[in-house]
């Protein structure tokens, strides 16, 4: 609707919310036996030209607990706040884009 930057921002926010959802389910399953931490490869998903649903994968290299669960609450809480902050930055940028368009419309009405 607006321009290239706004489209990119929209995709960025979409990916962030997808990732946030995975982080939430990792936290919810922090005590589920056999559950493996899930995530998306953010960089490659963002760079891939195709939109659509991101590819979910299991995170490698995390230590397993005795019940076969490898959720690290430290990792998830870091990602939780990181995603929320990134989302906040993106939404502020998008808002200023929209504000510019709105200003243009209003100035047009004034004359």
């Amino acid at each position: 609707m607006l321009d290239g930057v706004a489209t990119q921002l929209e995709r960025y926010m979409d990916l962030l919310s997808a990732r946030q959802k995975l982080v939430t389910s990792n936290i919810a399953n922090a005590d589920t036996p056999g559950y493996q931490t899930q995530d998306i490869d953010f960089q490659s998903e963002f760079q891939s030209a195709l939109g659509g649903a991101p590819h979910v994968m299991e995170v490698q290299g995390l230590p397993f607990k005795n019940d076969g669960n490898n959720v690290s609450l430290d990792r998830e809480s870091r990602l939780l706040s990181e995603n929320a902050l990134r989302f906040s930055v993106a939404s502020n940028l998008l808002r200023s884009e929209i504000q510019q368009v709105r200003t243009a419309i209003k100035e047009g009405q004034g004359s």
Binding site: L16, S77, A84, S88
Partner: peptide
């Protein structure tokens, strides 16, 4: 931890509404 996750997601939704 789950409460923290919900409030972070809630903030994101609020940002979108804003």
């Amino acid at each position: 931890a789950n409460v923290a996750a919900i409030s972070a997601v809630k903030d994101m939704i609020q940002k979108s509404i804003d």
